Computed example of a mutant assay.
Amino acid sequence: MSSSNKQSGKIGGKLALLLLPLLMAACATPQQTATGPQTATAPAPAPAELPSYNITATSPTQEALIEAENKEQFREDEESRQARVLREKNLHLKLVQTMIDQDNAYAALAHLDAYDQKWGADRPSKQLRADSLRKTSQLDQAELVYKSLLGGGQEQMKSGPIWYGLGKVAIERGDLRGAATRLEKAVQTDPLHINAYSDLGLVYLLEGQKEPSYNTLMKANQLASGDSKVMANLALWGLVFDDFNMAMDIADRLQWSDSTRNQVMSQANSIKRRFDAKGNQQ
């Protein structure tokens, strides 16, 4: 090989060594496209973290429904409790009324003490207490309780039995005029109060008021559809005012024994003597 060729070979080797790094750098450079140089893509974002849910939580709507349901259940329970208490109170008061009707007024007072201790005194229990006190001749206390139940408004509409009780207290005291006034208020307030008419008719009879007595007793008799007590008062009226046919007819209808007839006749004669004594005093 000539010296010129050797020299060319050395120069080509050196160029090759110089170009090799350039070629390697070119391989690492992004390729160009027809539209221009391609830019490097940004790294993909990490996936967003999903929210965590509490599977035991309830929505506001569900909570409201649950609360409303609980309130409804509580209301039903409270209504059931009140209904039970009302039944117990009514049964206790009926028991007391039965005792009074059977002339066991002292036992009735004891039961009323128990009633008031358990539930507190109310208008029905106070009225029964006044009746029991009257039946046991505790007239002053009975009158105080009766008067405590008198009032206006709605209470006035319920005062018929109260005036009747006060009228009975006056009869027990022998105050016939006071009894008449109170019993008249009883029938004015409660126009269907049979016992008030019956007792008022008897008071009129004892006072010698013939027509008012008859009219009032007839009201009681027709309202009561032939009650034996009312008819007995009518028979007494017939004997006092000399309507013997009516008196005997009632005695036959009630099937009075001779003993009962004699007792009623004795009462009538006593009333007539009272009239005579009253007339002589005048």
Rank of each mutant, 00 (worst) to 15 (best):
S3W: 11
K6E: 13
K6W: 05
Q7G: 03
S8K: 08
S8I: 09
G9T: 08
G13D: 12
K14M: 05
A16P: 00
L17E: 11
L20M: 12
P21L: 08
L23H: 03
L23T: 11
T29V: 12
T33R: 09
T35F: 08
P37I: 10
Q38P: 01
A40Q: 13
T41A: 14
P45A: 15
S52M: 09
S52C: 03
E69G: 07
V85G: 02
R87W: 07
K94Y: 03
K94E: 13
M99D: 11
M99V: 02
Q102M: 06
Y106N: 10
A107V: 06
L112H: 08
G120W: 12
G120A: 12
R123T: 15
K126N: 12
K126L: 15
R129K: 15
L133C: 08
K135V: 00
D140G: 12
L144N: 14
G151C: 03
E155F: 01
Q156E: 14
S159N: 08
P161R: 04
L166R: 15
G167R: 02
K168T: 10
V169T: 14
G174F: 09
R177C: 00
T181G: 04
E184S: 14
K185Y: 00
Q188V: 00
P191H: 06
L192M: 09
H193Q: 06
N195H: 10
D199M: 04
L202V: 01
L206C: 00
G208S: 07
S213Q: 05
L217A: 01
M218W: 07
K219L: 01
A220G: 13
S225Q: 13
G226Q: 11
V230F: 03
G238W: 06
M246V: 11
A247P: 05
W256P: 01
S257W: 06
S259E: 15
M265K: 12
S266M: 11
Q267W: 01
A268Q: 03
F275Q: 11
F275K: 07
K278V: 10
